[in-house]
Design a protein around this nucleic acid. Structure first.
Length: 272
DNA sequence: ACCGCTGTTCTCCG
DNA sequence: TCGGAGAACAGCGG
Protein backbone atom coordinates (compact mmCIF):
# COMPACT_ATOMS: atom_id res chain seq x y z
CA UNK A 1 0.00 0.00 0.00
CA UNK A 2 -0.09 3.06 0.54
CA UNK A 3 2.61 4.75 2.44
CA UNK A 4 2.39 8.21 3.97
CA UNK A 5 1.83 10.21 0.74
CA UNK A 6 -0.88 7.91 -0.59
CA UNK A 7 -2.69 7.87 2.73
CA UNK A 8 -2.48 11.65 2.90
CA UNK A 9 -4.05 11.89 -0.55
CA UNK A 10 -6.82 9.59 0.64
CA UNK A 11 -7.36 11.84 3.63
CA UNK A 12 -7.72 14.87 1.37
CA UNK A 13 -10.00 12.95 -0.99
CA UNK A 14 -12.30 11.98 1.85
CA UNK A 15 -12.42 15.55 3.11
CA UNK A 16 -13.37 16.76 -0.34
CA UNK A 17 -15.84 14.00 -1.11
CA UNK A 18 -17.67 14.42 2.19
CA UNK A 19 -17.74 18.23 2.19
CA UNK A 20 -21.31 19.32 2.89
CA UNK A 21 -22.47 15.77 2.33
CA UNK A 22 -24.08 13.35 4.73
CA UNK A 23 -23.97 9.58 4.98
CA UNK A 24 -27.48 8.28 4.50
CA UNK A 25 -26.56 4.63 4.88
CA UNK A 26 -23.55 2.36 5.10
CA UNK A 27 -22.93 -1.30 4.54
CA UNK A 28 -20.06 -3.71 4.82
CA UNK A 29 -19.40 -7.23 3.71
CA UNK A 30 -18.50 -9.82 6.28
CA UNK A 31 -14.77 -9.89 5.56
CA UNK A 32 -11.46 -9.74 7.34
CA UNK A 33 -11.57 -5.97 6.96
CA UNK A 34 -13.18 -5.66 10.37
CA UNK A 35 -11.19 -8.39 12.13
CA UNK A 36 -12.48 -8.40 15.67
CA UNK A 37 -14.07 -4.97 15.28
CA UNK A 38 -17.76 -4.18 15.16
CA UNK A 39 -18.96 -4.30 11.58
CA UNK A 40 -22.49 -3.39 12.59
CA UNK A 41 -21.19 -0.19 14.14
CA UNK A 42 -19.77 0.72 10.75
CA UNK A 43 -23.14 0.10 9.12
CA UNK A 44 -24.82 2.42 11.59
CA UNK A 45 -22.58 5.40 10.77
CA UNK A 46 -24.62 8.41 9.65
CA UNK A 47 -24.26 12.13 9.01
CA UNK A 48 -21.29 14.36 8.32
CA UNK A 49 -17.59 13.66 8.42
CA UNK A 50 -16.41 16.27 10.90
CA UNK A 51 -12.69 15.48 10.85
CA UNK A 52 -10.30 13.45 8.73
CA UNK A 53 -6.85 13.11 10.27
CA UNK A 54 -3.88 10.94 9.57
CA UNK A 55 -0.93 9.66 11.50
CA UNK A 56 1.60 7.57 9.64
CA UNK A 57 -0.38 5.20 7.48
CA UNK A 58 -3.52 5.35 9.62
CA UNK A 59 -6.62 7.41 8.91
CA UNK A 60 -8.60 8.70 11.88
CA UNK A 61 -12.10 9.72 10.86
CA UNK A 62 -14.65 11.45 13.09
CA UNK A 63 -18.32 11.64 12.28
CA UNK A 64 -21.26 13.56 13.66
CA UNK A 65 -22.46 12.27 16.98
CA UNK A 66 -19.02 11.36 18.31
CA UNK A 67 -18.56 8.28 16.22
CA UNK A 68 -15.10 7.47 14.91
CA UNK A 69 -13.44 5.14 12.44
CA UNK A 70 -9.83 4.00 12.40
CA UNK A 71 -8.74 2.82 8.96
CA UNK A 72 -5.58 1.29 7.55
CA UNK A 73 -5.29 0.58 3.84
CA UNK A 74 -2.97 -2.43 4.19
CA UNK A 75 -1.34 -3.29 0.86
CA UNK A 76 -4.10 -2.74 -1.65
CA UNK A 77 -6.81 -0.77 0.11
CA UNK A 78 -8.16 2.46 -1.28
CA UNK A 79 -11.23 4.64 -1.08
CA UNK A 80 -12.90 5.33 -4.40
CA UNK A 81 -15.89 7.48 -5.26
CA UNK A 82 -18.55 6.23 -7.65
CA UNK A 83 -22.00 7.27 -8.74
CA UNK A 84 -24.77 5.04 -7.47
CA UNK A 85 -25.69 2.38 -8.23
CA UNK A 86 -22.39 1.26 -9.78
CA UNK A 87 -20.95 -1.82 -8.19
CA UNK A 88 -17.26 -1.88 -7.41
CA UNK A 89 -14.94 -4.88 -7.58
CA UNK A 90 -13.49 -5.83 -4.19
CA UNK A 91 -15.61 -3.28 -2.41
CA UNK A 92 -15.55 -4.41 1.22
CA UNK A 93 -17.54 -1.56 2.71
CA UNK A 94 -19.25 1.60 1.46
CA UNK A 95 -20.91 4.84 2.41
CA UNK A 96 -23.95 6.07 0.52
CA UNK A 97 -24.05 9.85 0.47
CA UNK A 98 -27.00 12.21 0.11
CA UNK A 99 -25.90 13.20 -3.40
CA UNK A 100 -26.27 9.63 -4.67
CA UNK A 101 -22.54 9.09 -4.65
CA UNK A 102 -20.94 6.08 -3.04
CA UNK A 103 -17.59 5.96 -1.29
CA UNK A 104 -16.23 2.42 -1.47
CA UNK A 105 -13.48 0.93 0.62
CA UNK A 106 -11.93 -1.28 -2.00
CA UNK A 107 -9.29 -3.84 -1.01
CA UNK A 108 -8.33 -6.85 -3.10
CA UNK A 109 -5.90 -8.53 -0.74
CA UNK A 110 -7.77 -7.76 2.46
CA UNK A 111 -4.76 -6.56 4.40
CA UNK A 112 -6.62 -3.34 5.13
CA UNK A 113 -8.52 -2.79 8.35
CA UNK A 114 -11.33 -0.69 9.67
CA UNK A 115 -12.38 -0.33 13.28
CA UNK A 116 -15.34 1.73 14.44
CA UNK A 117 -14.62 3.41 17.79
CA UNK A 118 -15.65 6.49 19.76
CA UNK A 119 -14.18 9.53 18.05
CA UNK A 120 -12.79 10.71 21.38
CA UNK A 121 -10.80 7.50 21.65
CA UNK A 122 -9.14 7.62 18.24
CA UNK A 123 -5.86 9.14 19.33
CA UNK A 124 -5.67 6.96 22.42
CA UNK A 125 -5.80 3.68 20.53
CA UNK A 126 -2.76 1.48 21.00
CA UNK A 127 -1.76 1.33 17.32
CA UNK A 128 -1.82 5.13 17.15
CA UNK A 129 -0.03 5.76 20.44
CA UNK A 130 2.75 3.41 19.45
CA UNK A 131 3.63 5.42 16.33
CA UNK A 132 6.68 7.60 16.09
CA UNK A 133 6.49 11.13 14.75
CA UNK A 134 4.88 11.75 11.40
CA UNK A 135 7.30 13.78 9.24
CA UNK A 136 4.51 15.71 7.55
CA UNK A 137 2.22 16.58 10.45
CA UNK A 138 4.70 16.54 13.34
CA UNK A 139 7.69 17.88 11.44
CA UNK A 140 11.13 16.31 11.37
CA UNK A 141 14.54 17.78 12.09
CA UNK A 142 17.90 16.05 11.68
CA UNK A 143 18.23 15.90 15.46
CA UNK A 144 14.81 14.28 15.83
CA UNK A 145 15.65 11.80 13.12
CA UNK A 146 18.90 10.85 14.78
CA UNK A 147 17.14 10.55 18.13
CA UNK A 148 14.53 8.23 16.61
CA UNK A 149 16.87 5.97 14.67
CA UNK A 150 20.28 6.36 16.22
CA UNK A 151 19.74 3.91 19.05
CA UNK A 152 19.11 0.80 17.02
CA UNK A 153 21.54 -1.65 15.49
CA UNK A 154 19.09 -2.51 12.75
CA UNK A 155 20.10 -1.54 9.22
CA UNK A 156 19.07 2.02 8.47
CA UNK A 157 16.38 1.04 5.98
CA UNK A 158 14.77 -1.39 8.40
CA UNK A 159 14.81 1.29 11.08
CA UNK A 160 13.23 3.78 8.69
CA UNK A 161 10.34 1.40 8.11
CA UNK A 162 9.79 0.87 11.84
CA UNK A 163 6.54 2.77 12.44
CA UNK A 164 7.35 3.20 16.09
CA UNK A 165 10.39 5.30 15.20
CA UNK A 166 9.18 7.34 12.24
CA UNK A 167 5.59 6.87 11.09
CA UNK A 168 4.67 6.62 7.45
CA UNK A 169 7.63 5.29 5.50
CA UNK A 170 7.35 1.86 3.91
CA UNK A 171 9.45 -0.16 1.53
CA UNK A 172 9.27 2.27 -1.36
CA UNK A 173 9.75 5.59 0.34
CA UNK A 174 12.46 4.30 2.66
CA UNK A 175 14.44 3.18 -0.40
CA UNK A 176 13.74 6.45 -2.20
CA UNK A 177 14.88 8.56 0.75
CA UNK A 178 18.12 6.57 1.12
CA UNK A 179 18.84 6.92 -2.57
CA UNK A 180 18.30 10.67 -2.42
CA UNK A 181 20.59 10.87 0.61
CA UNK A 182 23.19 8.56 -0.98
CA UNK A 183 23.14 6.17 1.97
CA UNK A 184 23.37 2.41 1.56
CA UNK A 185 20.29 0.64 2.99
CA UNK A 186 22.39 -1.77 5.06
CA UNK A 187 24.40 0.92 6.84
CA UNK A 188 24.14 0.88 10.62
CA UNK A 189 22.56 4.05 11.99
CA UNK A 190 25.52 4.44 14.36
CA UNK A 191 27.80 4.85 11.35
CA UNK A 192 25.97 7.91 10.01
CA UNK A 193 27.72 11.23 10.28
CA UNK A 194 25.97 14.47 11.19
CA UNK A 195 25.90 15.59 7.58
CA UNK A 196 24.28 12.32 6.62
CA UNK A 197 21.52 12.68 9.21
CA UNK A 198 20.81 16.09 7.74
CA UNK A 199 20.79 14.78 4.20
CA UNK A 200 18.56 11.89 5.15
CA UNK A 201 16.14 14.20 6.92
CA UNK A 202 15.84 16.44 3.86
CA UNK A 203 15.58 13.38 1.64
CA UNK A 204 12.66 12.00 3.65
CA UNK A 205 10.77 15.26 3.37
CA UNK A 206 11.57 15.56 -0.35
CA UNK A 207 10.45 11.98 -0.97
CA UNK A 208 7.15 12.61 0.77
CA UNK A 209 6.64 15.84 -1.14
CA UNK A 210 7.36 14.10 -4.42
CA UNK A 211 4.93 11.35 -3.51
CA UNK A 212 2.19 13.84 -2.76
CA UNK A 213 2.62 15.57 -6.10
CA UNK A 214 2.83 12.28 -7.92
CA UNK A 215 -0.35 10.95 -6.38
CA UNK A 216 -2.38 14.12 -6.47
CA UNK A 217 -5.26 12.81 -8.48
CA UNK A 218 -8.80 11.61 -7.95
CA UNK A 219 -7.69 8.08 -7.22
CA UNK A 220 -4.44 6.83 -5.78
CA UNK A 221 -2.51 4.39 -7.91
CA UNK A 222 -0.11 1.65 -6.97
CA UNK A 223 2.89 0.76 -9.11
CA UNK A 224 1.81 -2.84 -9.61
CA UNK A 225 -1.42 -1.82 -11.22
CA UNK A 226 -1.47 -2.40 -14.99
CA UNK A 227 -0.63 0.58 -17.11
CA UNK A 228 0.99 2.46 -14.26
CA UNK A 229 4.37 3.99 -15.01
CA UNK A 230 6.95 3.59 -12.25
CA UNK A 231 7.47 7.15 -11.02
CA UNK A 232 10.19 6.33 -8.52
CA UNK A 233 13.91 7.06 -8.68
CA UNK A 234 15.18 3.71 -7.42
CA UNK A 235 12.29 1.47 -6.35
CA UNK A 236 11.51 -1.27 -8.86
CA UNK A 237 14.43 -0.32 -11.10
CA UNK A 238 16.85 -3.19 -10.57
CA UNK A 239 18.82 -3.74 -13.78
CA UNK A 240 18.22 -0.21 -15.02
CA UNK A 241 20.87 2.45 -14.92
CA UNK A 242 21.11 4.99 -12.14
CA UNK A 243 20.00 8.34 -13.50
CA UNK A 244 22.77 10.09 -11.60
CA UNK A 245 25.80 7.97 -12.44
CA UNK A 246 24.73 5.32 -14.94
CA UNK A 247 25.66 2.40 -12.72
CA UNK A 248 23.34 -0.60 -12.88
CA UNK A 249 20.88 -0.52 -10.00
CA UNK A 250 20.93 -3.57 -7.76
CA UNK A 251 18.55 -5.14 -5.29
CA UNK A 252 18.75 -7.50 -2.36
CA UNK A 253 16.40 -8.85 0.26
CA UNK A 254 16.50 -7.19 3.63
CA UNK A 255 14.15 -8.12 6.47
CA UNK A 256 12.07 -9.97 3.93
CA UNK A 257 11.64 -6.97 1.64
CA UNK A 258 13.30 -6.23 -1.67
CA UNK A 259 15.57 -3.24 -1.38
CA UNK A 260 16.86 -1.28 -4.37
CA UNK A 261 20.00 0.82 -4.38
CA UNK A 262 22.76 2.20 -6.56
CA UNK A 263 26.08 0.56 -5.63
CA UNK A 264 28.06 3.61 -6.64
CA UNK A 265 25.92 6.43 -5.24
CA UNK A 266 25.19 4.50 -2.07
CA UNK A 267 28.45 2.81 -1.06
CA UNK A 268 28.25 0.10 1.58
CA UNK A 269 31.06 1.63 3.57
CA UNK A 270 31.00 5.27 4.44
CA UNK A 271 33.38 7.40 2.49
CA UNK A 272 36.06 9.68 3.88
C1' DA B 1 -0.15 -24.90 -14.43
C1' DC B 2 2.91 -23.52 -11.13
C1' DC B 3 6.05 -20.46 -8.77
C1' DG B 4 7.30 -16.35 -7.06
C1' DC B 5 6.64 -11.64 -6.63
C1' DT B 6 3.89 -7.55 -4.59
C1' DG B 7 3.97 -0.84 -1.33
C1' DT B 8 1.32 -4.04 5.40
C1' DT B 9 1.29 -5.68 10.04
C1' DC B 10 0.98 -9.25 13.40
C1' DT B 11 2.49 -13.47 15.76
C1' DC B 12 5.59 -16.93 16.81
C1' DC B 13 10.01 -18.94 17.51
C1' DG B 14 14.99 -19.28 18.48
C1' DT C 1 14.68 -8.35 23.86
C1' DC C 2 15.53 -8.62 19.26
C1' DG C 3 15.41 -10.24 14.64
C1' DG C 4 13.90 -13.20 11.18
C1' DA C 5 10.33 -16.24 9.17
C1' DG C 6 5.76 -17.08 8.16
C1' DA C 7 0.99 -15.93 7.90
C1' DA C 8 -3.09 -13.39 6.49
C1' DC C 9 -4.97 -12.65 0.82
C1' DA C 10 -5.54 -12.12 -4.30
C1' DG C 11 -3.69 -11.17 -8.78
C1' DC C 12 -0.29 -11.02 -12.19
C1' DG C 13 3.70 -12.21 -15.04
C1' DG C 14 7.15 -15.46 -16.40
Amino acid sequence: MPELPEVEIERRNLERWFRKRRIVSAEAEKTRTFRGANRKAFESLRGRLVDASRKGKYLLLSFEGGRGLLAHLGMTGKFVRRSAPASEPYSRARFFLDNRQVIHFRDTRLFGRMEPVDAAQLWQLAPIRSLGRDPLTDGLTPAQLKEALGGTRQPIKVALMDQGRIAGLGNIHAAEALYRARIHPARKPSSLREAEWSKLCSAILATIQFGLEEQDSEEIEYVEEPGTENPFLIYGRAGERCRRCGTVIQSFVQAGRTTHFCPKCQPRRRVG
